[in-house]
Amino acid sequence: MTAAAAGDAAIGAPARARRMRTPNDSPLKILCLAPIVIWYAIFFGLPLVFLLWIGFWRVENYQSIPDVSLQNYQEIFQNWVVKSRYGLAMLQSFWVASTTAAIATVLSFLIALALVFAVPARRQRLALLFVIAPFWSSYVLRLYSWQTILSKNGVLNSMLKAVGLDDWRLEIIYTQIATRVGLVHFLTPVLVVILYVTVINIDRTLIEAARELGASRWQAFTRVILPLSRFGLITAASFALIMGLGDALSGALLGGGAGASVLGKYPLYSAMLMTDYASSTNLPRTSALATILVVAMVAMMALGVWVAERARRRVSE
């Protein structure tokens, strides 16, 4: 081969490179992604746009009329602390959701730790499966069952009566405590999965090394396991918080609508939104309420990220 031939090949090359398809350059890329993109655009993107838009519609004579009015938002904010008291419901939601998230995360973390450290490796998968099992059963039915358990003459109280502990009757049905019970029961299987994966991936030799260096079990836990689980704990807690804020069922069925908490007898925002729509079928106002919930949640997440970022920066400085 001569140098000239090599030169020719080099000159002819760019055009050729365009003609031959690489494995990454295939019509299948478009064809395989098209269904999900189209379906999401029509049945996910478009509804969210409608949610925003309908919030600005008017209602006249029980008819929704497309418009660009702030009527719904004015009405909602006028009733923020009086009459419908949307703002207090929002506050109640944040209070109940954050306490629930904390309880559920701690409970799930303890279960995950017990699974990893107290169950022989061969049985762990089965043990984990049993923790997850309730997740596969109907949520509405589980809440119904909790109702029968927690109600005034329900299973728990009748059991207490049967053993003569009548004075210890539980009076928690239709309070936010019952709401939390339902939510924790719903959240635990999911959070255990997240935290089990976190804890099982901690290198056991690190714990042994800490013990070998003279750390007590408690120190090994606080200095090794806990820091290494931090990311999983944050993920689990955030997930629990979002689910808690968005859930309407536990608040409606176990919290009895406006269940009492230390803040007072206010409904959860999402439960209130549901009953509000059920009684009024005022879709524009419901859309506005839902939009406010989205904005509040996004703001909360942004705040969380900001705080975490600041804390991280302070540590690294």
Binding site: L115, A127, A133, R142, V155, T188
Partner: peptide, 20 residues
């Protein structure tokens, strides 16, 4: 202790299902 706690957790998780 972990196994006892785990047993209690199973009771909590399965109580509503079994009673129903």
């Amino acid at each position: 202790l972990g196994r006892v706690f785990l047993a209690l957790s199973y009771v909590f998780l399965f109580l509503p299902l079994v009673l129903l």
